[in-house]
C-alpha cells in the first residue's frame, strides 16, 4: 500500500513541478486529439447535415451502418490504418507510419462514425415545428437547414465532445500506428500502459490524473455552455 501512496504523492509532485516529460506527453495527446476532432468535425458536420436533409434510397441503411461503427474496436481501426500505411500498403510510400500524423488520421477515422451518427440524430431531434415555422416565415430550403442546425447546436456540440473523449482515451490505435516512441509519438494512454507494466506507479498515476482532469474540464465546459442557453 505504501508503495502506491508514495506513487500518488510523487505523481502530484510531477504534475505541479511541470515535469517536462509529463508535459510533453500530455501536450502531444491534446494536440493529436484536438486535431483529429477538428478534422472529423469538418468532414462529419456538413456530411451529417447532408444525410439528414436529403432523402435518398438506402438512407436508413446508411444510418444503421454508421451506428454500427460507433463501437468499432480501436484495434480494428488500428489494423486497418496500419495496413494502409505500412511499407507494402497502398499508402506506404508516404512514410507516415509511427508518426503523429498517422495517429491523427487513425483517430479521425475512429471517431467519425460516432460524430456523424450523433450529428444526424441531433438534427433529427429538432422538432418539425421548427422547420415549419422557418418555412412559413419565408426561409428557403438552405435557410431552413441553417435554422435547424442552429437549433441543434448543443446536441452537435455534445457529438464533438464525445468524439474528443473517445479520441483522447483510446490506446490500441495509438500503440499500433504510433508505436509509443518516446518524445515523438508517446501519448497519455500509451505512456500509462507502458509505465504501469514497468511498475513506475508515480508516472502512471500522474499521467492518469492528467487524463481525468482533461476529461473533467471538457465536460465542465460543455455543461457550462449548455446551461447558459
Amino acid at each position: 500500500m505504501s508503495e502506491l501512496w508514495q506513487g500518488l504523492i510523487k505523481a502530484f509532485e510531477l504534475i505541479f513541478s511541470f515535469d517536462p516529460e509529463v508535459m510533453r506527453i500530455a501536450g502531444l495527446s491534446l494536440r493529436i486529439s484536438i486535431t483529429s476532432v477538428a478534422i472529423a468535425s469538418i468532414l462529419c458536420l456538413p456530411l451529417g447535415a447532408l444525410i439528414h436533409f436529403r432523402s435518398f434510397p438506402g438512407k436508413r441503411l446508411l444510418i444503421t451502418v454508421v451506428q454500427t461503427f460507433y463501437s468499432v474496436p480501436t484495434v480494428a481501426v488500428g489494423l486497418f490504418v496500419f495496413v494502409l500505411f505500412s511499407r507494402s500498403g497502398p499508402l506506404g510510400g508516404l512514410n507516415l507510419l509511427f508518426t503523429p500524423t498517422v495517429m491523427v488520421i487513425g483517430q479521425a477515422l475512429l471517431i467519425m462514425p460516432i460524430m456523424l451518427g450523433m450529428t444526424i440524430s441531433a438534427l433529427s431531434g429538432v422538432d418539425r415545428t421548427i422547420t415549419d415555422s422557418a418555412r412559413s416565415l419565408g426561409a428557403s430550403t438552405w435557410q431552413t437547414s441553417l435554422v435547424v442546425m442552429r437549433e441543434a447546436r448543443f446536441a452537435i456540440m455534445a457529438a464533438v465532445v464525445l468524439g474528443f473523449g473517445r479520441a483522447i482515451s483510446e490506446v490500441g490505435l495509438a500503440y499500433m500506428v504510433g508505436g509509443n516512441i518516446r518524445g515523438f509519438t508517446r501519448v497519455l494512454t500509451t505512456a500509462i500502459s507502458l509505465e504501469t507494466s514497468r511498475g513506475d506507479w508515480a508516472m502512471a498515476f500522474a499521467l492518469g490524473i492528467i487524463l481525468m482532469v482533461i476529461a473533467l474540464a471538457v465536460n465542465l465546459i460543455l455543461n457550462w455552455v449548455q446551461q447558459k442557453r
Partner: peptide
C-alpha cells in the same frame, strides 16, 4: 411564401433572443 406569413397552431420560437426571432423573416427576404 415570402408574400405571406403564418402563425401556426403550435408556434415555436427559435432558441435564440427575441430580437433574432423577430428579425429572421426580414433577413431571409
Amino acid at each position: 411564401r415570402r408574400r405571406m406569413a403564418a402563425v401556426l397552431q403550435k408556434p415555436v420560437l427559435f432558441n435564440t433572443s427575441v430580437y433574432e426571432n423577430v428579425v429572421c423573416g426580414l433577413k431571409w427576404r
